[in-house]
Write a protein that binds this DNA or RNA. Structure first.
Length: 584
RNA sequence: CGGGACGUGGCGCAGUCCGGUAGCGCACCUGAAUGGGGUUCAGGGGGUCGCCGGUUCAAAUCCGGCCGUCCCGACCA
C-alpha cells in the first residue's frame, strides 16, 4: 500500500491532479457548504473522471485537504491571505442568519454551550454586557421608586395550581424537584446514583419559571392597609423554563432576568405602573441598546397567562423577525384573589390589591447582537460595550517599546471615564488584533506606533463606517483624546438611527388583503400593519398559514395615520390596528 | 415528542461503504527572526475515535442499545 500524501488545493477552489488507475482521492471539506459537501463524496477507487493518466479537476474549498496516492503534480499552496479570509470569515448574514448569529455569539466569546442541555454559560465578555444592562435598568427601577428583594428559587407546587390560567401557561415547561437525596445503586456509569425513594417530597417543588405566585403570597402577609401600598419590588434572578428548542441568549432553559412585582390600591394606579415600566424598557432599549422598538398591547392569545393585559416592546431584528424584548403586565386582581392579597381601603372596605409584573432578560443581549451585528462580527453600542476603545500599541523593535508603552499609558489616563483596554500581547501582529477586536464589536480603536509619536498623531479606527467614511483616520493626538467622548456619543446615536431606519424600511403599512399579507411575510418579512376584527379565529388562521403572529396592537405613536377599516383576514370591520410579524 | 443529519486532539473535518500502525488544517507550547490589516521558519505536546455491550485473531470502521448536538415540525420570553 502506497503512502498517502496530503496536498492542498491549488488555487482557491480547484485542484488538478494526474491520477492513475489506482488513485484514491478523498476530500476534507472545511465547511459544510452544500456544494463542497457534494464534492467530498468523490472518493473511493472508481471516481468518475479519474481514469488512467488524464488530468482531472476536483472542486473543493480552499481549506480542503486532498489525500491521494499515485503520480501527481505538487500543488502550489494557496495564497495565505485568501486561505485566511476563507477559513476565518463568518457565515454571511444573508446566507444563513442563524448560523451567523451562533458564530458571532460564540466567536465573540459572549457565551458558550454548556454540558447541560439547553443551558448556556455566559462568558466574562458577555456577562459584562449583562452587568451594564443590569446596572442601568436597576438605576431606572430605583429612580421610579422600586426596591430590590430576593424570593426563593423553589415554589411549592400547590401555589402554582391556584391561578388556573397562569399554571396552564407554564405547565408544559417546568423543572420539578421531587427528591432530596441520591443513593448509590451499585450500577456503573450514569446509573450509579439514583434518587433515594425514601427521600421523596410530600409536595414537589417547582423551579420558578417566574415568581408571581410566591411573591404575591408574601405580599399578602405584608399588606394590611392602603397605607402599605403601593408596594414596589424588583428581583434579579434566574428562572427555568423547560424549552424544547434553545438558542444562546434568545431561548435557553435557564436564563437571567429581572422581574418587577407591584401591588396597588386601584386599577388605574396599576395601569399607570405597567405603562411606566414599559416606557422604562423602551427608553433603555433606545438610549442604551440603540434598538428600535414598537410598543403596544398584546392580543389576548399572546397575553401573559394570568394577566388582564400585557404590554410589550417589539424589536426588529436584521432578518426582519420580531423579538419581544421586554414585557409589562397589568395583572388585575387575578393573583391577589388567589393569594388573598387584601387591604383595608380608606373607606374601611376590604379590597383586593391590583398587581403588575414586568420583566426583561438576558435575551436582550441576543437582540443586541441581531440588531447591530454585521458580517465582520459583533457591533456594540458604546453604552453597553465592555471595552469602548481598544488601544493597540505598535512596537517593531524592543527599543521602541518603552516609548510606545509610555505614550499608551498617557492615552489611557487622558481617556479617564471611557472603558479602555490596552492590547499589549506580543504574540500577535497588530492586524490579528484588529480583526479580533472588530469581531468583538469594540466601537473605536486607537493605534499608536513610533511614527505616530514622532508626528504627534494617533490612528483612530471606527468599527462601523457610515457611507463614505474611511476606516482609519490619522489625527493629532490632542484631537483624538478630546473628541472621543463626543465620538462615542455620536456613534451611539448613529446606531439608533440606523436601527430606526431599518425598522421603517421594513414596516409595511396599509396592507389590506390577505394575499398581500401572506406575500410579504413569506417574502421579505418585517412588521406588517393591518386591520383586525379582534377574533381569535382570524389570528389563528394567519399563524397557521404563515407562522406570523400579532406582535402588538401598536401604541398611538406607532399607529398608522390612516386607521385600517377592515380585518385583513375576514374583511369584517376592524376593531384594532395590529402589527404582524414572525417572531423569535 | 415526531422527521432528518451528525458525534474522531481545543475548533473545523478526512478516514467508516470494503475491519489491520489514528490523520489533516487551524489553534496551542518552545526557539529564532518578525511586527502599521489575520507573520515566517524549525521543533514539540495533545485523541480510552460520544457511552455501554456484541461479533472478530483484530473494531473509529460491522451489529444492538443508550446518551448528546444540530436542522425541520408541535411549544415558548
Amino acid at each position: 500500500m502506497g503512502c498517502w500524501i496530503a496536498g492542498r488545493s491549488e488555487g482557491r477552489r480547484e485542484i488538478s491532479i494526474i491520477p492513475s488507475r489506482h488513485s484514491r482521492v478523498s476530500g476534507n471539506p472545511g465547511r459544510n457548504k452544500p456544494e463542497e459537501r457534494l464534492d467530498s463524496r468523490l472518493r473511493g477507487n472508481d471516481i468518475a473522471g479519474f481514469r488512467d493518466d488524464k488530468p482531472a479537476t476536483i472542486r473543493c474549498c480552499s481549506s480542503t485537504v486532498l489525500y491521494y496516492r499515485g503520480p501527481f503534480e505538487q500543488p502550489k499552496s494557496i495564497p495565505r491571505e485568501e486561505q485566511m479570509a476563507d477559513e476565518k470569515a463568518l457565515t454571511a448574514r444573508a446566507e444563513d442568519f442563524s448560523a451567523w448569529y451562533n458564530e458571532v455569539v460564540v466567536g465573540a466569546e459572549l457565551a458558550d454551550h454548556s454540558p447541560v442541555r439547553g443551558c448556556m454559560v455566559i462568558r466574562p465578555y458577555g456577562y459584562r454586557m449583562w452587568e451594564l444592562v443590569r446596572d442601568e435598568l436597576d438605576r431606572k427601577f430605583r429612580e421610579t421608586g422600586h426596591q430590590n428583594a430576593y424570593f426563593p428559587l423553589f415554589i411549592p407546587q400547590s401555589f402554582l395550581s391556584r391561578e388556573a390560567d397562569h399554571i396552564e401557561g407554564f405547565a408544559k415547561e417546568m423543572a420539578i424537584v421531587t427528591h432530596t437525596r441520591l443513593k448509590a445503586t451499585g450500577q456503573a456509569g450514569a446509573a450509579a446514583l439514583a434518587p433515594d425513594p425514601e427521600s421523596r417530597l410530600d409536595e414537589p417543588l417547582i423551579v420558578r419559571p417566574t415568581s408571581e405566585t410566591i411573591i404575591y403570597a408574601m405580599f399578602a402577609k405584608w399588606v394590611q392597609s392602603y397605607r402599605d401600598l403601593p408596594l414596589l419590588i424588583n428581583q434579579w434572578a434566574n428562572v427555568v423554563r423547560w424549552e424544547m428548542r434553545t438558542r444562546l441568549f434568545l431561548r435557553t432553559t435557564e436564563f437571567l432576568w429581572q422581574e418587577g412585582h407591584t401591588a396597588h390600591a386601584t386599577s388605574d394606579e396599576a395601569e399607570q405602573e405597567a405603562r411606566q415600566m414599559l416606557d422604562v424598557y423602551r427608553s433603555f432599549m433606545e438610549q442604551w441598546m440603540a434598538m428600535a422598538v414598537v410598543t403596544g398591547r398584546k392580543s389576548p392569545s399572546e397575553t401573559f397567562p394570568g394577566a388582564d393585559h400585557t404590554y410589550s416592546c417589539e424589536a426588529m431584528m436584521q432578518d426582519n423577525r420580531a423579538l419581544q424584548a421586554g414585557t409589562s403586565h397589568h395583572l388585575g386582581q387575578n393573583f391577589s384573589r388567589q393569594f388573598d392579597l387584601k387591604f383595608a381601603a380608606e373607606s374601611g372596605e376590604e379590597e383586593y390589591a391590583w398587581n403588575t409584573s414586568w420583566g426583561a432578560s438576558t435575551r436582550l443581549i441576543g437582540g443586541l447582537v441581531m440588531t447591530h451585528g454585521d458580517d465582520r462580527g459583533l457591533v456594540l453600542p458604546p453604552q453597553l460595550a465592555p471595552i469602548q476603545v481598544v488601544i493597540v500599541p505598535i512596537a517593531r523593535k524592543e527599543e521602541e517599546r518603552a516609548a510606545v508603552m509610555e505614550k499608551v499609558q498617557q492615552i489611557v489616563r487622558a481617556l479617564d471615564g471611557i472603558r479602555t483596554h490596552v492590547d499589549d500581547r506580543d504574540n500577535l501582529t497588530p492586524g490579528a488584533k484588529y480583526y479580533e477586536w472588530e469581531s468583538k464589536g469594540v466601537p473605536f480603536r486607537i493605534e499608536v506606533g513610533p511614527k505616530d509619536i514622532a508626528k504627534g498623531q494617533l490612528v483612530l479606527a471606527k468599527r462601523v463606517l457610515a457611507e463614505g467614511e474611511e476606516r482609519k483616520r490619522f489625527l493629532p493626538e490632542e484631537e483624538v483624546l478630546s473628541t472621543l467622548p463626543a465620538l462615542l456619543n455620536e456613534y451611539q446615536d448613529w446606531l439608533l438611527e440606523q436601527a430606526r431606519e431599518r425598522r421603517e424600511r421594513n414596516s409595511h403599512r396599509g396592507v389590506r388583503d390577505y394575499d398581500h399579507l401572506q406575500e410579504v411575510i413569506e417574502g421579505e418579512g418585517g412588521f406588517i400593519y393591518t386591520g383586525w376584527c379582534g377574533s381569535a379565529a382570524c389570528e389563528a388562521r394567519v399563524k397557521d398559514d404563515t407562522k406570523a403572529t400579532i406582535r402588538v396592537i401598536p401604541d398611538p405613536e406607532f399607529a398608522s395615520e390612516v386607521r385600517p377599516s377592515t380585518c385583513v383576514v375576514c374583511g369584517e370591520a376592524s376593531a384594532e390596528e395590529v402589527v404582524w410579524a414572525r417572531a423569535y
